[in-house]
Design a protein around this nucleic acid. Structure first.
Lengths: 345, 345
DNA sequence: GTGAATCGGACAAACGGTTTCCTAAGTTTT
DNA sequence: AAAACTTAGGAAACCGTTTGTCCGATTCAC
């Protein structure tokens, strides 16, 4: 074997950055052809073990890292997906992204992050740029459970919708089990002896508010109970929680359980209850939704709440996308179950 | 011109996904060679305007989207960067990512998102995968302002450290202006007539706690004032804020201003003050740090707080990275200033 | 010792664009 | 009308890797 220099010699260093070794450098150093080097490193072809070892050693010494872009060009796969979030990395997209990254990481895929800021134009722009980059698939993560318009027809790659399902039922969507969340909350309240239960939640314009409210009534009925008063639709804020509780205590002072549509509302509710002199959780039980640790653990008392399983939802979205990429799409609306996190409220 | 079929005809559709048109299809449809089609679309070469138009029309009809992976192979640039966050998309990395995406988007770059979960092994793994994908650069976003070990020596691409600066001063780092943040808070308290000011902050083990505490003392001195008592080091939590205020009111009942090292602490502090019967902001002024809207706006009263400019920091990191990629690295520690957000506390 | 089977590795095509070089017209000059 | 320029567009090289084909050299059977 002709002894080569240990560093790739020619080519412009230009900037201060070190030059990258290519497979040609490795092959030269190991004294074989490029094709042989490739086979040696990928376990293909018929090669003597000694040759393989020699090539591996050369690759090691040169810190050879094969360019996936060259490989992609050949195979048509980039092992790359795009995640488009409409939520500016807010409360919902964060756990979804985490879960998705988990699932994708197992498939050795990396995710491009795109924040559409809920602007359809930005969204289209991102889709275009993702397709130019030949991503293998796209996840569209929403911020509400209301159905949304599909991101495009006849895209050349599979798309999975997370949280906000696509209006087109032949698309692949994953969302949270809203009725189940309401049941978990009500079952817990009833199990802990509450009988006069009220419901304070977000805007009536949000699908999840309406669905949860309906499911709450249903879940109570299954226990032979009626909701105390009507559901209190308002906003996703502590102030609304406080205000609604103040009103509630006037109209129904004997309430002993409150199911809140969000942790922030529940936190406002507990504050108002406490300040009205009620002792928690003895007198009134409160259950929230989100298990948003920041709110739930800082509340007094710490909130019992329904975790919607958003991270699991993200993971599921990643898995469904990978399946679709591999040729087994599972169209339709999938749901992931939530679970109750019992704290002290 | 020989009239072609409007869709690329040959090749395996295989899956249900539509086939993608390549530049060869465009060229065929426009009745020119591949090279000419490329020139027409990129505004190169000497072509009749009529030819360009014909090619553009063909590209349009075929929804041609040039593969950046092919282009990258040739140019060596992928217009792609990696963002490694140690923070599981927490409070700090979110605004940083937003800012970085802003800056990178202007350069038509897309970002791979990698969550290292503060695990050096995961981090190295991500670095390796990013380099295989030939990213043009890497942003490493930390979660504290303590300096950290560099992510590797002699990497073939530029790296910018955000929030947590690299211990190697020849690396490129951006962090927040901690002393400036303390000054903003103290100046505001003094300007609104406070004279007996205390400081409640996070763990002594965090650089930002120590730096802010020292700078607080200094800023007070500049006004001819002394800190009331010692800085209260504790944890970044509401419970600590409440506890510290309870103690503080016993040791120094005449305190009229509190600078808290975080909004969560400040929120705990305002709760404890309010519950002790103090009227806010008349009797005691409170200033936090973070401008974390969720905490700051839900507090009673809404918190006046120092915004560390994390989104701006992310943007700056993106800009510095782009500059380094373009051959003009700016090594050293850069800082971005914060600003005061005045609410009612 | 000869032919067949096996083995190890070189060679070249391919992926999808961009770019450089070159040629065949058309246009101007003398 | 021939020489000198322009102009428009084609042919081919190139980027870095994988992979199928093919060929020379051993080894084996007879």
């Amino acid at each position: 074997m002709t002894s080569d220099t240990s560093v790739p010699e020619s080519g412009p260093p230009a900037n201060g950055l070190p030059r990258r070794a290519g497979i040609a450098d490795v092959a030269a150093r190991a004294g074989v052809s490029v094709g042989t080097a490739s086979k040696a490193l990928n376990g293909r072809g018929n090669l003597r073990e000694e040759t393989r070892a020699r090539v591996r050693a050369a690759a090691e010494e040169l810190e050879f890292a094969p360019s996936t872009v060259a490989r992609s060009l050949l195979t048509g796969r980039t092992f790359t997906v795009g995640i488009i979030t409409t939520d500016s990395y807010g409360r919902f997209s964060i756990p979804i992204m985490r879960g998705a990254e988990d699932a994708l990481g197992l498939g050795e895929m990396l995710a491009f992050l795109c924040d559409s800021r809920d602007d359809p134009i930005r969204e289209q722009h991102h889709i275009k740029r993702l397709l130019e980059r030949r991503v293998d698939g796209i996840i569209v993560a929403g911020r509400r459970t209301d159905a949304r318009q599909p991101v495009g027809r006849n895209l050349p790659v599979p798309v999975v919708y997370a949280l906000a399902p696509s209006a087109d039922e032949s698309d692949i969507s994953v969302t949270s089990d809203e009725p189940g969340a309401a049941r978990l909350a009500i079952d817990h309240l009833v199990r802990t002896g509450r009988r006069r239960i009220a419901h304070i939640t977000g805007p009536h314009s949000h699908a999840s508010s309406r669905v949860r409210a309906d499911s709450t009534v249903e879940a109570l009925r299954a226990h032979g109970l009626e909701l105390v008063g009507d559901p209190w639709f308002g906003s996703w804020s502590e102030a609304w929680g406080r205000f609604a509780v103040a009103q509630l205590l006037r109209s129904d002072p004997d309430v002993d359980g409150i199911f809140c549509g969000a942790d922030v509302i529940a936190r406002g509710a507990t504050d108002a209850l406490r300040e009205s002199g009620a002792s928690l959780p003895m007198q009134v039980g409160v259950v929230g939704v989100d298990n948003w640790v920041i709110s739930a653990e800082a509340a007094r008392p710490p909130l019992t709440t329904v975790d919607l399983g958003l991270q699991e939802l993200g993971r599921r979205a990643g898995e469904l996308l990978i399946a679709a990429i591999d040729g087994s799409p599972a169209p339709g609306l999938h749901t992931v179950p939530g679970h109750l996190v019992v704290r002290e409220s």
